[in-house]
């Protein structure tokens, strides 16, 4: 498990221990990765983060068109693996969690401990630093720096 911000590690590790999730990705709503577990290639992380952020943006818009509030979580049930995508508010902005899990656990367990992780993250998140907007000219540099931190290489 790798995290860009150390305060994320404990809640995420507890979630991983309790939920038996295979892959987990925490990212900002713009797709910037905050922490990951289980991914071995930086390309996979970049792709999953971009797709996850895109899906959440699409479902948010769908909810808006339906006159509903935002959807809580999106679960895709597969035969061998399932995937949960859930957005949540933190003092550092809106984040997204992408969790891939297998039949060794259940969506109920994953949702239960995911919600507990979110509560912990919201409680312990440092308040002093507001998230900086991502500018186009900084994007590539920030992305490479994040991937280096998450994988130890570029």
């Amino acid at each position: 498990m790798r995290a860009l911000e150390p305060w994320v590690i404990d809640p995420l590790q507890t979630f991983l221990d309790e939920s038996s999730a295979r892959l987990t990705l925490l990212m900002t709503s713009s797709g910037q990765v905050v922490a990951q577990h289980g991914f071995s290639r930086s390309l996979d992380v970049m792709t999953a983060a971009a797709l996850g952020a895109g899906i959440v943006a699409s479902t948010d818009e769908l909810a808006r068109l339906m006159g509903a509030t935002r959807f809580g979580a999106l679960v895709h049930h597969g035969v061998r693996q399932s995937c949960m995508l859930s957005a949540f508010g933190t003092p550092r902005g809106r984040w997204i969690g992408l969790v891939v899990f297998g039949p060794e656990t259940s969506v109920g367990i994953v949702q239960l401990f995911f919600d507990q992780m979110v509560e912990q993250l919201v409680t312990i998140a440092p308040r002093e630093q507001a998230p900086a907007p991502v500018l186009a000219e900084n994007f590539e540099g920030e992305l490479n720096a994040s991937l280096k931190a998450l994988f130890g290489r570029q």
Binding site: T105, S106, G108, I109, Q111, L112
Partner: peptide
């Protein structure tokens, strides 16, 4: 109920 269901199911 949600926690009891998830944990009892597991």
């Amino acid at each position: 109920g949600r926690a009891a269901a998830a944990l009892a199911g597991s």
